[in-house]
Amino acid sequence: MSELAVQVDRLTKRFGDFTAVDGISFEVRPGEVVGYLGPNGSGKTTTIRMLLGLLRPTAGRAEVLGFDVERQAEAIRPLVGYMSQKFALYDELTMAENLEFYAGIYGVPKGERRGRQQAVMDLVGLNGLGDARAGQMSGGWRQRLALAIALVHRPQLLFLDEPTSGVDPVARRIFWNTIDKLADDGATVFVSTHYMDEAEYCGRLGIMNGGRLLALDTPAALKRDTLPGPTWNLIVDRLIPALDALESLPGVFQVGLRGDHLHAITLAGEHSQHTLQSSLEGMGFSVEVESTDPTLEDVFMALAGDKAPSLD
């Protein structure tokens, strides 16, 4: 078996004239948590479906857990778990009955089921809640049960599709702590999302747009390497006129509203705290400029926004 959990080489999928996935290559090591960030239609789901052996690539190849996705798809499926944003739970069944049901579907041997079910309920922190009806549980608890279900057959590779959308931030943190525990034990986790809140938790993050993988690195490295220049917060008296003024300044890449202040990316070497301050003051604004850390949204806009360098 290959040393890598996932190995993708120039993978391409075309539907008629439409190229959904365009020659992407990447590798994932066992125990990594890798995210895929991109809008709907950017090719995230098509990629995952090819990796699961559900769609035939038009060109290129991919190996998952050492198996070729085209020729050995049957060998891959029992080894992967999948949790979607819209997970299906049976509201009328208890938490434990839901888990039992899916353990059966995934073919967990009868003799192992009880122990296995107990282990995943422990792992996701649902101990003692087995008898509660699933329909009565709130979002955070249902999502933990969905994760338990995705894990009950001990998958080596876990696909998560927007797993924590809509749950509260505390529940989201607990969820990711569990994911990190799984990864520390050697499971590989692949997350697709279009939310920055979720993407921040990944060890490495791929930025997808228009079927292409624009970058793949740690969130820290993406923030360091992909922006055209530094980022600033501007606390200013009249927000909207200041936003317009700033957008028309040379050397300003992008400006956005951040509630009670503005957030700007400038081109490298074009502006300092002082030049931004004096330019705006010169136009009659009262302003305070702070240097700030870039966000993943800045990264995405820099790589895929309408001012990003053209792909072709």
Partner: peptide, 30 residues
């Protein structure tokens, strides 16, 4: 996606600039 979201907010900003008020519900910090 983030780009469409940015576009949408640019429209909201214009409305706010014209003196409208907005209540937005969201589970997302971004």
């Amino acid at each position: 996606d983030p780009i469409t979201r940015q576009d949408f907010w640019q429209l909201i900003i214009r409305l706010l600039g014209d003196g409208a008020g907005v209540v937005v519900s969201t589970p997302y910090m971004d």
